[in-house]
Design a protein around this nucleic acid. Sequence first.
RNA 1: GUAUCCGUAGCUCAGUUGGAUAGAGCGUCAGACUCCGACUCUGAAGGUCGCAGGUUCGACUCCUGUCGGGUACACCA
Length: 561
Amino acid sequence: MDYKRMIADTVRLDGVSAQEIYEMLVPPKDSANGDYCLPCFKFAKQLRTSPIEIARRIAQETARVAALSKVEAVAGYVNYTLDKTMLAAQVLDRVLAQGDAYGASDQGAGKTVCIDYSSVNIAKPFHMGHMLNTAIGAALYRLYAKLGYRVVGINHLGDWGTQFGKLIVAYRKWGDPALVESSGVRGLLDIYVRFHKEAEQDPALDDQARAAFKAIEDGDPEAVALWNRFKDITMREVERTYARLNVRFDSYAGESFYNDKMQPVLDDLRAQGLLEYSDGAQIVRVGDDMPPCLLVRADGATLYATRDLAAAFYRKRTYDFDRCLYVVAYQQNLHFRQFFGVLERMGEPWAQDMVHVAHGMVSLEDGAMSTRSGHVVTLEEVLDKAVEKARGVIADKSPDLQDKDGVAEQVGVGAVVFGMLYNARIKDMVFSFDKCLNFDGETAPYIQYTYARCNSVLAKAGQSECEPDYRGLDNPEAAQLIRLLDRYPQTLVEAARKYEPCIVSRHLVDVAQAFNKFYFEHSILQASPAEREARVRLVRATRHVLASALDLLGIGKPERM
RNA sequence: GUAUCCGUAGCUCAGUUGGAUAGAGCGUCAGACUCCGACUCUGAAGGUCGCAGGUUCGACUCCUGUCGGGUACACCA
């Protein structure tokens, strides 16, 4: 039942529709003012009446709406307070009936969303910058799936380009097959870094690298075999990391996949007369406020944008998406505006369904990360340190815990992932181990602790046949918690609409905080049987919402910790 | 230079299509475990919302300008 609707339908104001009223009913900032409020200032001019008088009249009209325990006109606002016991009964019934599926919806039924995220580079380490990208993309993936969309997760592998020529040259010169096999990406990175260092002294190396890449392009068996080997080594490692993060992809079609799919797009552009020559290169103009999009180099080679264009057409054809998201750092803002602009000029109606979900950059305290110079913090070492720290806390505080290693993994990895998803995605992040390994306050361990605490209470509560008496929840702490549980579904919708996982994480923290306050102020198991049942139901509902949100963010849920 | 994003407490950040006295965590200080898990909870201190105009009954929120910072700007991805 929709209380806002009931109130809105009862209001009679000349020239104002129930829908307008409905949309104006908002939760007051201070919940002491009630559950909803209606500011009446807007009506004053057209009704030629003071907001105070209008509020008074509306308050009178709507006072008879059932389920309201209080209606008050205050300083031009009408404040509505819902009957706490009725609200509690309704919200808890709804949450408990749906369980962990609470918050799911069918808004995406029949619709497809493609999400391009993570996009690892072959032969390069998976560092904290990729972590941010991957966490955001994976959270959006699960979020859209929860809202009923068919989601296609795409890992657009960086598996093409002259760097592979460099790697081949470096590998042939300094690579020890056995060593590279055992040291993996680290070993590949080492010879890659060495290549750059030596190429400064010996420019001939760059020519050899170009030749080696050309060999891959021309299908030279030995070069292609090496290239595949680099891919295998990288993917083996990356898959291990994805498994730890519980991240999955539906497609690994990367750059090389589109090698043979660019020409038709270029032909199409040429046929439409959009492709122009400029200084020997071929470009498409996309508007006066930005530089043209460069698609073919003077030497005939294609570029990043060409591949993205081919990929877009392929995805539209293959998945028939309703929306295609690109989770990529804001550094590439211009690139996406240009690339989307080309689609628009081609008259593709779906050009407007393309979205660059831009996020901030991760840097280190002593400057930007650089793969070439080896100045990176890899995800693996961060996760390992976090898990190690979690293990220490567990040894200290829960020495009798079962499966200490499993829980430490969930807590440590969870803390890192949550740190990536806690702020608005556009924010830059200066990585530090101190901040990343913080387990206090608004962190994953805090939420996981709350979740474990719920489990503990529920285990002790056992089963009950008793009918709940919701007067046991008629207190500010329970009311606040119930309000938050009630708003969870619309929170998910908003997070998806804005492509902002942090809206989910913030709500998750709010729920955990509200629960802990309630827990501290009110005894659950010691209450009278009927009130105890009401409170146990609240704990159970809270547990469902915590579980659901943790799942969406990709954070483990230790039953105990 | 042009475009674009960011600027809110000592630090890191929230702030719901413009609404009532701008919120949280960390840190600091002071408290709460004979009681359902103290990885918890309570309280205090801390703010010209970068600055200046404008729109509005009402601006952290919208517009213009300005200052500070990030990023990008043709043959890399």
